[in-house]
């Protein structure tokens, strides 16, 4: 479960943030999940909650986690066409989706611009896991 590794990264970053800002308790971590990485929300949330149960301040079981999904938008660097990753997802087999799940940039191997077929595109939105906000006191 690769979600566990990313959950560890979130907790570690929140602890580091508290050390830098002087927060005694992190009350909430707001996370967005970009659709390109196809993170499974339930196992990710489960991993975060399990880790928080084992921790003591600045993060602990009372630290609230909020997740929001973010559309993955790709933009062709050649013809400037923009498209939604979910449109390309149907054409990818399970193994390719799994590879993108591990390293989203691998999408450059499997996805081409639907308009001009260029592999030169930019991930403008919804790449992967991102901390939008850490709230503490």
């Amino acid at each position: 479960m690769h979600e566990w590794a990313l959950a560890e990264a979130v907790i570690s970053t929140a602890v580091e943030f508290a050390e830098k800002t002087g927060f005694e308790h992190i009350t909430e971590i707001e996370i967005s999940i970009g659709e390109l990485q196809q993170i499974e929300e339930d196992p990710f949330l489960f991993a975060l909650e399990e880790m928080l149960k084992e921790k003591s301040k600045p993060v602990d079981k009372n630290t609230k986690i909020t997740l929001e999904k973010e559309n993955a938008i790709l933009k062709c660097k050649s013809c400037k066409h923009e498209w939604d990753y979910l449109n390309a997802l149907n054409e990818l087999d399970e193994e390719k989706v799994e590879s993108i799940h591990f390293v989203p940039e691998v999408s450059h191997a499997f996805i081409k611009c639907p308009k001009c077929n260029s592999p030169d595109f930019e991930i403008t939105n919804g790449r992967g896991v991102w901390i939008n906000n850490i709230i503490g006191k």
Binding site: K96, S99, V103, E105, V106, H108, F110, P119
Partner: peptide, 20 residues
Amino acid sequence: FTQETATPMRGTDITNAITE
């Protein structure tokens, strides 16, 4: 992960892939 498929990447992609 790329199954021997060519994977062209720009700088931001390279940094992201290394970090990941």
